[in-house]
């Protein structure tokens, strides 16, 4: 868009100035030619792009209904891998661990991120605010394997052995920056006059937060929570390195299955997880898109 306008402007400059009546239709035609849709092959590239993104996923979904034990040879439609997956105790317990860890870590990570974002954007005389903000975001730039090894050593030093506790602590930790970013962005975009207006109208600070700040940054908080949840559910490196102590997350469990060979059950599990993620993400998406 900006490109087309610039072109239109430079076009006008390079030619002698016409009257505005002549200029207006000319400008419009230039813009039309530069619209992305008019580039040759736009459609083909778009189709290719979406195919590249979604074809593998569609293959997984399709083959999850394959009756054959050999994954890549179609034999006929069947629900049998779904029932087998649902009856797999190891899988179900991994699923349960994953969701529990994700839910608890999301709660703590979002709360901590919210507190950090509030202090950094609303606190008065916060010392070293830019450095603090950088520190909160730093884990995003750290290779995860470094973080994983660090928590592994830390936990062994502190002699924390409970697998669930280890997972929750580690996941909370690396989810914080993901929850922080959208909340911080929302707070930055919010007019601080609104909070002052509430205080001016006799609302004490906590009431102001409850009635004004929180409702207005809610889309950011929800987005942060959703990101945390997905990041936690998806995590493999850290969960794998600190696994043990009686808690295995789903990605770690699936990896152990893959090592024994790809079973059609995996397709069914993947499809199920996708369905659940969609179910969770959809209402969040609608909520955070609401004004």
């Amino acid at each position: 868009m900006s490109l087309s306008i610039n072109d239109a402007v430079s076009d006008n400059i390079s030619e002698p100035m016409n009257t505005t009546a002549e200029n207006t239709p000319k400008r419009r035609s230039v813009r039309k030619n530069h619209d992305a849709k008019h580039f040759p092959g736009f459609k083909a590239v778009t189709v290719l792009f979406f195919a590249f993104l979604y074809l593998p996923i569609l293959v997984v979904i399709g083959y999850s209904f394959n009756e054959n034990k050999i994954v890549s040879v179609w034999h006929g439609f069947s629900w049998k891998w779904y029932s087998s997956a649902l009856q797999n105790d190891g899988l179900m317990s991994a699923l349960q661990v994953s969701f529990t860890v994700a839910a608890v870590a999301t709660f703590f990570a979002t709360s901590i991120a919210l507190a950090a974002a509030l202090v950094l954007s609303r606190g008065k005389n916060v010392k070293h605010a830019p450095v603090s903000e950088a520190v909160v975001n730093l884990p995003l730039m750290l290779p995860e394997i470094v973080f994983a090894v660090a928590v592994l050593i830390l936990f062994s030093q502190l002699e924390i052995r409970n697998g669930m506790l280890k997972l929750i602590l580690a996941h909370t930790c690396f989810c914080i920056p993901f929850a922080f970013l959208p909340i911080r962005a929302r707070l930055k975009g919010m007019n601080t006059n609104l909070e002052q207006a509430a205080q001016d109208l006799y609302a004490p600070p906590w009431t102001t937060f409850k009635l004004i700040t929180l409702p207005l940054i809610m889309p950011g908080v929800l987005a942060g929570a959703m990101l945390s949840f997905v990041i936690s559910l998806d995590d493999f490196i850290t969960s794998n390195i600190i696994s043990g102590g009686g808690a295995t997350t789903l990605p770690v469990y699936i990896y152990s299955l893959v090592k024994q060979g790809v079973s059609p059950e995996l397709n069914a599990i993947s499809t199920l997880i996708m369905a659940i993620s969609l179910l969770i993400a959809t209402p969040f998406w609608f909520l955070s898109n609401r004004k």
Binding site: N191, N193, L194, Q196, A197, A198, Q199, D200, L201, Y202, A203, P204, P205, T208, L211, I212, P215, L216, K291
Partner: peptide, 30 residues
């Protein structure tokens, strides 16, 4: 005294109406 304990009210330059409340709720807030 903090702002919320002073019996003065302000009309802000950019109005600062609460965007998630209707007009009656805005007026009712105080």
């Amino acid at each position: 005294l903090p702002a919320h304990k002073r019996r003065v009210n302000t009309v802000f330059q950019n109005y600062a109406l609460f965007p998630h409340m209707n007009l009656a709720e805005n007026i009712d807030f105080g």
